[in-house]
Structure formats: structure tokens, C-alpha cells
Design a protein around this nucleic acid. Sequence first.
DNA 1: TCTGGGGTCCTAGGACCC
DNA 2: TCTGGGGTCCTAGGACCC
Length: 415
Amino acid sequence: MKELYALVDCNNFYASCERVFQPSLRHVPIVVLSNNDGCAIARSEEAKALGVGMGAAYFEIRDLARIHGIRVFSSNFALYGDMSSRVMTTLEEFSPDIEVYSIDESFLKIKGEMDPLEYARKIRQRVWRCTGIPVSVGVATSKTLAKLASKKAKKLGGAFCIDAVNLTKILESCQTEGVWGIGRRHALKLERWGIMTAADLVKCKNDWLMSQFPVTVLRTVEELRGLAVIPFEDQPESRKSVCSSRSFKKELKTFEELSEALLTFVARAAEKLRHWELYSQALSLFIQTSPFGSRPKYVKSVTVQLPVATADTTELGGVVLDLLKKVFKNGYAYKKAGVVLLDLVPEKGIQPDMFDTVDRDKRQRLMLSMDKLNQQLGRDTVRTLGSGTKRQWATKRELLSKRYTTCWSELLEVK
DNA sequence: TCTGGGGTCCTAGGACCC
DNA sequence: TCTGGGGTCCTAGGACCC
């Protein structure tokens, strides 16, 4: 029996999440903003129809929002993350083989016992009933085609299946840039050769593709031909890096301000690490000025290997300060900075250092009790000295909705 | 005035070694 | 001092994704 892939994609996910707990927002245009209320990262269909572009800066659409009564929200990741896991749990009812691809998408492997289109419709109904989130489901013989099918599904009532009969037509109607794995740059290059659609793409010779593009493009083309060559990843590989970074509301100019921010970021990153029971073996730090405007620009990053693998906030904090001393330059207005922990290994697999003088058991107990307190009493209840109290850089989130599902004090009230 | 954050993979080129 | 090929490892940057 032929194996098929279904892609289940939540429609305008963040906007839909806002809607679940405020039914009055149904049919009302909604926009969700990025951090710092900077730009639009999700739009309901109504907002798209009004011309709000993906990534549009808030200051550019503010008038439009006022005129048309668009409801604007700061991003509420506590809510979206929780809604996401509800959706994914529901999907597990349908297939044991599930690859959670992102916060709002999953691939399912399905054996073709049932009519695939019927199956896709069932998934849709079930997710809607259990979570209140509308999804689109696309089914095909490869993940790339399933992505394409789900796009089609968005326009055609929520479910679509690509088969041998309609394949050519679908490929002809799809611009190269609309294909999963073909981005802006590759599309432009293809265009110069007169390759405009997915149908043109599948006609290309493999040798030629290999000579002009990275292998990833060849893989994508094979998938468009219906061959499943991109692996299905049920068991997500252990992650390889973790990053905590932020754009600042107000630009930072002094070493002290930047170090406060970076020490907070490294604390966040280390907390994630401990949560996944991983240690990092290298640390990277970057600082940069705004890419916009005419003021002097400076972008710098540094990476170091750590002598001992660690997830210890204070230890990593020391490294951060050393690195910042190396890259910091006076006279610039820094707009963004971040810390990346790299070369992650499981706690069990670490190489102890013969000359290590730190009592690691003790330090680890300290970190874990800190995490526990922060989890119970709220983020940053306990934190290390140096991460600051002024928080000049703090994120702006003025239009935040409630954390309906993860915070007792913000539950939905029914009158 | 105001322009996101967090990932992965691939490749070219340099350093180094035999 | 110059000559050559071939291999590995690392890193920075590019491209892509949501």
C-alpha cells in the first residue's frame, strides 16, 4: 500500500489563537505583532484582504488599523505554545507517525486504507472541534507536494489531495518561489533561465541543477516529481543550538547596559538547556547596531569553545562578559544583541576536565532550584546578579491578550 | 519616533597535514 | 627555494524555513 504524507497547517495560527477565547473577534480583522510591537507576523484573512502585508511595520499600518477597526495584538507566546500542543495532541489520534515541524504545522504519515481526501476532512473537523483552531490539510506522496497541497487546501475548503491526475496542473499553477525550499534568491536565479513554475522546475536535468544550485534544490525537485527523498523525522533529533536574542526598545550605548541584557539572554538560554537536559560546549555572542537609518553601523560576533561542557548560568555569564569586552566598542548605538549556545550534548555524555576545580553537583543543584522557583513564581523571580534591574532594553508589549490557558489568574471569565 | 526571533543545512575557502 | 596533489577540519556566510 502506498505511503502518503499529510501536512496539517493551522490557518493564520496566532490570529486564530486570539480568536478562540474571544468569539466576538470572529470575522473581525486581526493582526499579531512581533516583539517590541514592531511588525505584523500574523494576519487574519480579513486583515490580509485589507492589505496588511506579512512583516509590515506597525507604524506603517497603524492608520489603516484605526480606519478599518483592525484588532491588533502583541504576541502572546504562552498562549500560542499551549494551543499548539493541544492541536498536536489531537493529531496524534490520527497517526502514530507524526513530525511536528513547527509551532503550527505537522506532517503525518498515512497508510492509504481510507480515501485520503476523506481522511483529511476528518482531521480538520476533529481539530476544529477539540481546539477551535481551523486547519488546512494537504495530502500527497512527498512532504514537498503535501505542502503544496495544503496551500491549495486553504483556497478550497480546507482539504486537498494531489494525485497523478491533477499533479501537472498543480505544478503549472505554482510559481517557483511558492515551493517549499525555494526562496527568493533561488527563484530569481531560476527566473533568469526562464524557469518560472514548479512544472518548469521538474523538467530540469539533475546534472544541471547540481551544477547551479546546492543539493537541497535537487532534493526539492525530486520531491516535486513525487519521490519522498526528504526524511520523515518522527523522532526529532536533539537540538544543536539554542539562541536568546532581542531587539531593544531603546538603543543601548554603554558596556553596562549591554552586559545586563546579554547576561539576561544567557540566563534564558541556559534555562532552556537545563530543561532539555543538555550542556553546551561553545558559546557565541553578537551585538549590532540598527541596519536602518544613516548612523554608523557595527555588527560583530565572536564564538569560543568552552573548556568544560556546562549549562550553568553563572559560568556562562562569565564567558559572556569576557567576550563582550572583546567586541564592545564605544560610540555606537546598539539595537540588537544575543547569545547562542552551541555544540549541545546530553548531560550524560560530557567529558569531565581533569583540572576542573568547580563543584559541579552543587552548582547544578543551585541552578535547578532556581529554575523551580522561577517556574512556580514567574520568570526572573530569582536571577543572577548582573542581569540588572533597570532593564532599559525590555520588550514592549502593550497590546497583550491574556494567557487564558496557562495562567490561573487570566482564565476566561464567563458572565 | 517606530522595522521579530529562533532554528537548520550547505558551501566555499582557509589552515593544516602528509 | 621551488615544485604538486590530496585529504581533513573548521568557520563564516548564505539561503532557507516558520
